[in-house]
């Protein structure tokens, strides 16, 4: 799984009917040290995260792995907010 910062939201009236009820957020990918990467994701939000929060994304086929997202054709899902990371002996607070 990867992490990223939520930088925006998506408003879409004409969309796949199965996407009803999901907030679509724009997430800019980050590496584990907190530096930005080049990719952006549009992810469905399952836990109610807002702008400027560092969230964890499940991408690919595994995003269908829960009751809410099964057979919904969603491939990027926000599943957790990451506050702090301890790596290489030092703490990084997002």
């Amino acid at each position: 799984m990867i992490i990223g910062r939520v930088i925006g939201t998506i408003v879409s009236n004409a969309k796949e009917p199965k996407y009803e009820g999901y907030k679509l957020l724009v997430v800019k990918e980050m590496n584990v040290y907190g530096e930005y990467e080049k990719n952006f994701y549009i992810a469905a939000d399952l836990i109610g995260s807002g702008i400027d929060e560092v969230v964890m994304l499940v991408t690919g086929a595994a995003a269908r792995g829960s009751v809410e997202t099964n057979e919904k054709g969603i491939d990027a899902v926000i599943t957790a907010k990451i506050e702090k990371v301890f790596i290489d002996g030092k703490e990084i607070i997002f």
């Binding site: 836990i47 702090k84 301890f86």
Partner: peptide
């Protein structure tokens, strides 16, 4: 394994 994380707000299956 090279690190751990803290997360207070997660998906219920976690």
């Amino acid at each position: 394994v090279i690190g751990v994380t803290w997360s207070n707000h997660k998906h219920y299956s976690y």
